[in-house]
């Protein structure tokens, strides 16, 4: 009998409505429904969630840490995208 491991799933939990789902951890499961149940029983034992996403870890496309500089640093010097870049003249309100 082969004892091949069940696939790995990543678990994302919305802790209350209005908030985004956030990565909580991972679990192993043979199928999607088992993954949802395992996520529920593992990561919401203390009422931590109102909604759960599970996704096969192998299905996640991730950025490459080796490319971090090329991938993220170009955004660093576009400081004009942030509201604090702009000095508003005194007396102007609601802006």
């Amino acid at each position: 009998m082969s004892d091949k491991e069940w696939p790995l799933y990543e678990v994302f939990i919305r802790s209350k409505s209005g908030l985004s789902h956030r990565h909580a951890g991972s679990i192993h499961a043979a199928d999607d429904q088992m993954a949802l149940d395992a996520a529920r029983d593992t990561y919401t034992r203390r009422n931590e969630g109102v909604s759960i996403w599970v996704v096969r870890s192998s299905q996640i496309v991730a950025s490459d840490p080796a490319e971090t500089a090329a991938f993220f640093e170009p955004a660093e010097d576009k400081i004009y995208r942030h509201p604090t870049f702009y000095d508003m003249p005194d007396g102007v309100e609601n802006l």
Binding site: W6, I27, H28, A29, M34, D37, A38, D41, T42, R45
Partner: peptide
């Protein structure tokens, strides 16, 4: 049989 099922059954 598996850790995940251990948690389910404790619940």
């Amino acid at each position: 049989p598996e850790l995940e099922e251990e948690l389910a059954n404790a619940n």
